[in-house]
Amino acid sequence: MERLSINDPPPGPQHGNNAQQGQQGQQPPQVGVSQGPPQLPPQMFTTAAQLLDLTDKKLVLVLRDGRKLIGVLRSWDQFANLVLQDTIERLYAGNLYADIPRGIFLVRGENVLLLGEIDLDKEDDIPAHLQKAPFQEVFDLKKKEDNERKRSDKKRNNQLQGLGFEAEHSGEILF
């Protein structure tokens, strides 16, 4: 597929009007040539246009369950279903983090929270307070943190419900 960015003007013969063609003698006559499929406008306000810019870039994908995946976006569709290659999962807990190599991911769009393009110049500038640690250590710490958070969220939701508030996102906990 031709790599278009949303800033590109639409290609093809529609770009100029027919009156100009008389002045530009080197152009072949367009008489009888079908216009082909309609060209996309310069600013395509579609999911596809937004994701096209991110294709083949290194991204951090945050899922609804709080997972952070870092990989290269290779394919996608209009629902933001995504394919990531050479993915690693990065766990954060306290001021520790750990990487787990995962491989290829096919993610269903509804689970996507956000997709951020990583600035390759800054990617190695890990915030000073963070330290890399063995997976098991981070995993155990994270489990503890998650349980605590779950408990406090549940308590808060119950209190809110008692006051007549409906829990946001139907009580599902987003990270």
């Binding site: 937004q50 994701l51 991110l54 951090v60 945050v62 609804r64 952070k68 933001a80 990065r90 954060y92 983090y97 769009g109 509804e110 996507v112 929270l113 956000l114 997709l115 951020g116 393009e117 990583i118 600035d119 800054k122 990617e123 500038d125 890990i126 915030p127 307070h129 963070l130 987003l174």
Partner: peptide, 19 residues
């Protein structure tokens, strides 16, 4: 940002409308 270290090196992002 301190609370969300995974976003420290992100320059642009796509956010799903539903969230």
């Amino acid at each position: 940002l301190d609370k969300y270290p995974h976003l420290s090196s992100v320059k642009n992002m796509f956010i799903r409308g539903s969230v």
